[in-house]
Computed example of a mutant assay.
Amino acid sequence: MKLYYSKGACSLAVRILLHEIGVRCEFESVNLKTKQTETGQDFLTINPKGSVPALLLDNQEVLTENAVIQQYLADTYKATGLLPPAPDFRRYRILEWLNFIAADLHKGCGPLMKPALPEEIKENVLRPVLNQKLRYLSQHLGQMAYLCGDPFTLADAYLFVILSWFPALKEKWTDWPVLSKYFSALKARPAIQKALAEEGLS
C-alpha cells in the first residue's frame, strides 16, 4: 500500500490509523498547489479530485476520502477496537462522529485558513459557526476521555488532526481547556507521536 499525503493535512489521520493498527505502508508526499508528488508524478492521474489522502492498494485500486479510507482500514485489518463490526451499534456512533468531523469541523476550518478571504468574513461569519461546533464538542468531551468513551477510535484520530490546526486557525487553547486536555492526552499516544515525527511536526 502507498498513502499519498500532504504534511499536516487531514491525511495525517490515516497515517495515525496505520500506526495504530500496525500496518506497513509506503508514504509519498503531494504538493497540493502544483499537484505533483515527491517523485514527480502528476497527482491528478492518481486522484483526479486532487486532494489527499489517497490510498493506493496492493491490487492497484485507489481509495479516496478520509472517512472511507479509515473505515476500509479498520474493517480490512479487523481493528474492532477502532471500529466495531456491524451490527454493533457503537460502530454507528463512531461513524456519526466521523461524519460530524468531516462535514462540520473539517469543512468549517478550511475557509478560515485561506489568506485571500477577507478577515471580516472570517471573524463575523465563519468563526462563530465553527465556535458553535467546538462548544458542542467541548461539552461532550468534558464527560469522557474519548469521543465514544473508551477506547480510542478512528474518530479520535481524525479529531486530533483537526485540533492540530488550532494555531493556523488562530484559535487559543486557553479558550478551550477541555479540548486542550484532550489534545495533549492524544498527543502522548505512540502512534500519534510516530506519525507527527514522520511528517516533521513533533
Rank of each mutant, 00 (worst) to 15 (best):
T39N: 07
S29H: 09
V62N: 01
V62S: 01
T34H: 06
Q36P: 13
T37H: 14
F27L: 07
A74W: 07
F43T: 14
G50K: 03
L32V: 02
E38K: 00
E61P: 15
L56S: 04
L56Y: 06
L55W: 05
N47W: 01
I46W: 07
K49T: 08
V52F: 04
P48A: 07
P48V: 02
Q36G: 08
N31L: 02
A67I: 03
K35H: 13
F43S: 12
I46M: 08
T37E: 15
S29N: 06
S51I: 15
Q36R: 15
V62I: 15
Q41H: 15
F43N: 11
I69C: 07
D58Y: 11
N59L: 13
V30M: 01
S51D: 12
K49A: 09
V52P: 06
K35P: 13
L57G: 08
P53Q: 07
E61M: 13
T34S: 14
G40E: 09
N31C: 03
T64R: 03
L32W: 00
T45C: 10
N47T: 05
Q70L: 09
D58V: 05
G40C: 15
I46R: 07
G40Y: 11
I46T: 13
L73G: 02
Y72V: 11
N59Q: 15
L57D: 10
T45L: 14
D58W: 10
T64G: 04
Q71Y: 01
P48R: 11
G40M: 13
L55H: 05
T39K: 13
K35W: 10
D42Q: 03
Y72Q: 12
V30C: 01
G40S: 12
K49V: 05
I46E: 09
T39W: 10
T45K: 15
K35Y: 14
F27Q: 08
T34I: 05
V68M: 10
A54S: 11
V30K: 00
A54M: 06
P48L: 01
S29Q: 14
N47C: 05
